[in-house]
Nucleic acid binder design. Structure first.
Length: 590
RNA sequence: GCGGCGGUCGUCUAGCCUGGUCUAGGACGCCGGCCUUCCGAGCCGGAGAUCCCGGGUUCAAAUCCCGGCCGCCGCACCA
C-alpha cells in the first residue's frame, strides 16, 4: 500500500513541481474536484487530444466530422435528455450515525414499490408515514435533500424560465444538431459527429485527485447508423485480426474476473456486443489507448450490469486501464444509446429527426386519406366557415382521418365546433413509396482527457537506479528536443542557440540549457520526458558533428550538425534513432 | 456527508507531545559567479516560509483548544 501510494505521490509531486498539473485555487486553500494544467500539462494534453483526433476523426473523415457547441445549455435540453430527472438524487441522512442514503432506494427497499421519479416531498412523506429508519443503526432519518449533479445557472435575468445547466456530457450538442449535420453530410449514414469540450458535473464528494473532477474535457463521438443496414464493413476489415479483452455482464454476475480475449468482430457476431459500431469503436479505443503507452494486457472492457446502466443506454462497456493506485480506472465509456436521445428530442422539440432509407424495391401501397371538401364547408357554415377552416388546419390528414373513423355518429367535434362528417371525404389513394423514415441508432465512445493524461503519466513514469523520468511516446512528449552545449563556452553556446532557433522555426517545442554540468541538464530534461537531446561539443566546432542522445537508453548517435533536426523529426514520426546508419557512442559514467 | 489521520520555503522534511533562545533549522531544487570535453562533481555568494485560514487560551502559540478549508484512509455517494 505504501509503495503504491508513494508511487502515485511521486508522480503527482513531479507533476506539480515541473508544471504538469496541480490543484486549482491553491492560494485560497484549494477546491476539491478541480485541477489546473501547467505549461507542460497543456502541451501533453494537447498531444493526447490530437492523437485522439487522429484515431477517431481524421482516420474516419469521410464519415466522422467534428463540431463545437456551448457548455451552457437551456434546461429544456437536459429535460428532454432525461438528465434533469435521472441526474438528481434525493438523499437522507441518519441523524444518529450520519450514514447517507438514496431516499428512493430506501423507499423501494422498504415498501417494495417503484420510487424512481418521485419528488423529494413525496419521498419524505413516505418515509415519515411508514416510519422508515436507518437500516444500519435504526436511527431517525433526517430531511430528504436534493442533490442535482448538474451545475445550474441562468441565461439572462434570474427567473425560472431562464434556467440553464452546464452540460455534463457533450453528447446533447450532437443530438440537437443531428438534423443539420445529417443534411450537411448529404443525408448519408453512417455518420459520426465528434466533439471535444469541457463538461461539468457537481459531484457530491470527489476524492480521487485528478481522476474524479467536477470540470473536465470530454472527447466523444455520437455515431449514427441505420440499424437495418449498419454498413460496418470496417469492423470486418480492421478488427478481425485484433483482439480485445471483454469482461461481460454475465461473467461478472457469475463472479468471474478473467476477461474474454476476442476480436471485436467476433464479439459482435456472437452477440456479446449488441451494436456493430459499438464493437468497431471499442476496437479503435483499444488501439488508441495502446498508443498512449499502455500495454495491451492492462486494458479491458467491462460490461455494465443492467442496474448500472444509464437511463439512455441499452448496453455499456467501460474501458478499464489497470492502475497502481485504484486498481482499475475507467478511461472511456462505450454506450449503445439506441434511438433514445433523438426520439426524446423529437418529442420535446417537435422537430422531425428522422433519417430516410431507400427501399430496395419501391412499394405500391393503398392508403386512406381524409380530404376537406371546402365547398361543402362554405355551403354548410357560410360566415362561420373561416373558423372551421382554422380549426381543421391544425389537424394533419392522419389525425383527421383517425378522428372521423373513431367517432360514432354523423358529426365530429373539433375545438368545440360540431362538424358534419360529410364535409370530410375519405379517399383511397395509391402511392409509390421509395423511401422510409427511421430513427438512427447511436453508438457512443466517450473519453475523459484528464484521466488519459494521468494514465500517460503513470505508464510513462520510470525509475531506474534512482533515475526518474517519463518515458513518453515521442509523439506525446510535451518538449521534443533539448539542445545543449557540452559546456558553457563559446563558440558552443552560439552554435547551440542557433540550432534552438532553427528548432523553433520548424515548429518544435524545444529547450536550450547551458547551466551547470551536462549531466545535471540531462537529468533535468529526462525528468520531463524530453525524448531527444542534441549536444553541441568540440567535434561540432572541428568536424561539424553533434550527438543525439536517446532518453530511454541514454545512448548517443553522432550525426552532422546540418542533419540533426531532420533526424529528430524522423524519429518523432516513428523512426528508430539507432537504425538510421549513424555511429553509436556509449559513454562510461564518471 | 460521517469517523480517523494529516497540512511548516518550489519540493521533501526537522521542530509540535513537554508553549519561550524558532527574527522557524536542514536537504534537494532555484538564481548569480567560478569551475567543468558527456550523465544529479566541486567552490563562493544569494533569493525563497501568510508555520493552511479564522477565532480562543496565555505575559508568550508553528506548538494547546474551537470552527472552517484542503488532502489521505474507511463508510456513504459517483446517471
Amino acid at each position: 500500500m505504501s509503495f503504491v501510494s508513494s508511487r502515485y505521490e511521486k508522480i503527482m509531486e513531479i507533476a506539480a513541481r515541473r508544471g504538469f498539473l496541480w490543484q486549482s485555487f491553491e492560494i485560497y486553500g484549494g477546491v476539491a474536484g478541480f485541477y489546473d494544467l501547467g505549461p507542460l500539462g497543456v502541451l501533453l494534453k494537447n498531444n493526447i487530444v490530437e492523437l485522439w483526433r487522429k484515431y477517431f476523426v481524421k482516420q474516419h473523415q469521410e464519415f466522422v466530422v467534428e463540431i463545437e457547441t456551448p457548455i451552457i445549455t437551456p434546461a429544456i435540453v437536459f429535460r428532454a435528455s432525461g438528465h434533469e430527472e435521472h441526474f438528481t438524487d434525493y438523499a437522507t441522512q441518519c441523524t444518529r450515525c450520519g450514514r447517507l442514503y438514496r431516499a428512493d432506494h430506501l423507499v423501494e427497499e422498504f415498501l417494495r414499490i417503484e420510487a424512481e421519479g418521485l419528488s423529494g416531498e413525496e419521498l419524505e412523506k413516505l418515509i415519515r408515514e411508514h416510519d422508515i429508519k436507518c437500516p444500519a443503526c435504526g436511527g431517525e432519518l433526517g430531511p430528504v435533500k436534493k442533490f442535482l449533479l448538474l451545475f445550474t445557472t441562468y441565461i439572462g435575468p434570474y427567473s425560472p424560465e431562464n434556467l440553464a445547466y452546464l452540460r455534463p456530457e457533450a453528447a446533447q450538442g450532437m443530438f440537437v444538431n443531428f438534423k443539420r449535420v445529417y443534411e450537411l453530410m448529404r443525408r448519408k449514414l453512417p455518420l459520426g459527429i465528434a466533439q471535444i469540450g469541457r463538461v461539468a458535473r457537481n459531484e457530491i464528494s470527489p476524492r480521487q485527485g485528478p481522476i474524479r473532477l467536477r470540470e473536465f474535457t470530454i472527447m466523444e463521438i455520437e455515431f449514427f447508423y441505420d440499424p437495418q443496414n449498419p454498413r460496418a464493413d470496417v469492423l470486418e476489415e480492421r478488427c478481425s485480426d485484433y483482439k480485445v479483452r471483454i469482461l461481460t455482464a454475465d461473467q461478472r454476475t457469475r463472479g468471474e474476473e478473467k476477461p474474454l480475449e476476442i476480436s471485436p468482430c467476433e464479439a459482435y457476431r456472437e452477440g456479446i456486443v449488441k451494436s456493430p459500431w459499438l464493437a468497431y469503436w471499442m476496437c479503435v479505443a483499444n488501439k488508441f489507448v495502446e498508443a498512449l503507452g499502455v500495454p495491451w494486457s492492462r486494458i479491458y472492457f467491462e460490461e455494465k450490469l443492467p442496474n448500472e446502466l444509464a437511463h439512455y443506454s441499452k448496453q455499456t462497456f467501460d474501458q478499464i486501464v489497470v492502475v497502481e493506485r485504484w486498481g482499475k480506472l475507467e478511461v472511456s465509456g462505450h454506450a449503445y444509446r439506441h434511438s433514445y436521445d433523438l426520439e426524446r428530442h423529437m418529442k420535446f422539440s417537435g422537430v422531425d429527426m428522422y433519417a430516410v432509407r431507400q427501399l430496395k424495391e419501391p412499394r405500391r401501397v393503398v392508403r386512406k386519406v381524409a380530404k376537406i371538401d371546402k365547398v361543402a364547408i362554405i355551403n354548410t357554415f357560410r360566415e362561420r366557415a373561416k373558423d372551421v377552416f382554422r380549426v381543421l388546419a391544425k389537424l394533419s390528414s392522419d389525425e383527421l382521418l383517425k378522428l372521423v373513423e373513431s367517432t360514432p355518429g354523423d358529426t365530429v367535434v373539433v375545438n368545440g365546433i360540431e362538424i358534419p362528417k360529410n364535409v370530410v371525404r375519405v379517399e383511397q389513394v395509391e402511392e409509390t413509396i421509395a423511401v422510409e423514415k427511421f430513427v438512427p441508432h447511436v453508438a457512443e465512445p466517450s473519453f475523459g482527457a484528464e484521466r488519459l493524461l494521468y494514465i500517460v503519466l503513470e505508464y510513462s513514469y520510470t525509475e531506474e537506479n534512482g533515475r526518474k523520468y517519463f518515458r513518453f511516446p515521442p509523439e506525446l512528449a510535451p518538449i521534443k528536443v533539448a539542445i545543449l552545449p557540452l559546456v558553457d563556452k563559446e563558440p558552443l553556446t552560439t552554435i547551440a542557440w542557433r540550432l534552438f532557433e532553427e528548432a523553433k522555426a520548424r515548429g518544435l517545442y524545444a529547450i536550450y540549457d547551458d547551466s551547470g554540468s551536462i549531466g545535471r541538464r540531462y537529468v533535468r530534461v529526462d525528468e520531463i520526458g524530453v525524448p531527444y537531446a542534441i549536444t553541441v561539443d568540440f567535434d561540432t566546432v572541428e568536424k561539424g558533428l553533434v550527438t543525439i542522445r536517446d532518453r530511454d537508453s541514454r545512448k548517443q548517435v553522432v550525426v552532422p550538425l546540418k542533419e540533426a533536426l531532420d533526424v529528430v523529426e524522423k524519429c518523432l514520426r516513428g523512426a528508430n534513432l539507432f537504425e538510421l546508419g549513424y555511429p553509436v557512442v556509449e559513454r562510461e559514467e564518471r
